[in-house]
């Protein structure tokens, strides 16, 4: 998503170059073009682009012959799918009950303030997406912060500042 991204400055702009041979590999080779594996295909596509580009979703709909509206329903239903481009890093703060009691709300606020983004949003430089999740299943080490699938147990403001300092330095 970096070098080939389009020049336009609109935040809404979600144009990325789609590699259709790669899509074909995912849809046809990896999952045999079987529409029952649709969600797994969507996950695989999202792993490639870090979100679900419209063109890729349309292509998927054509190949597996599932109406676009159905795929859109699924994509908007599950919080783990995103139709908007995500930042280079995805920082998820757990706001489940245990983590909430151990102050994850304040952590979300802290990041929001420092990075200038609301939860669910991405910084203008596309570096960081801030997300909240409801219980990642590690309540014993609450509060938990997850950065790109790496878990940080017993996180605190210092952990976050560390991370954001590194981000700023990049």
């Amino acid at each position: 998503m970096s070098g080939t991204a389009c020049q336009c400055q609109e935040i809404e702009c979600a144009e990325v170059e789609i590699d259709y041979t790669l899509l074909d590999k995912i849809i046809r080779d990896d999952y045999g073009g079987n529409r029952e594996a649709m969600i797994m295909m969507m996950q695989a596509i999202q792993r490639v682009y870090r979100f679900l580009p419209e063109a890729a979703v349309k292509y998927l709909s054509q190949v597996i012959e599932v109406p676009l509206t159905k795929i859109y329903e699924v994509a908007t239903f599950y919080a783990s799918f995103s139709l908007e481009p995500k930042g280079k890093y995805i920082l998820s703060v757990c706001t489940g009950t245990a983590c909430h009691l151990r102050g994850s709300g304040g952590m979300v606020e802290h990041i929001s303030k420092r990075m200038g983004i609301a939860p669910g949003k991405t910084t203008a430089d596309m570096k960081l997406t801030l997300e909240t999740v409801n219980c990642v299943g590690a309540c014993a080490v609450a509060p938990v912060v997850v950065v790109d699938e790496k878990y940080y147990p017993k996180a605190d403001i210092a952990t976050l500042n560390d991370f954001m300092d590194r981000l700023d330095a990049e």
Binding site: P67, K70, E73, F77
Partner: peptide, 23 residues
Amino acid sequence: EAVTGRTLSLAGRGVAIHVDTAF
């Protein structure tokens, strides 16, 4: 869906659910 129109869908879920066209 029944008339094969493929235009309207129920997007989102829970309190955010709403009728919309794809994208």
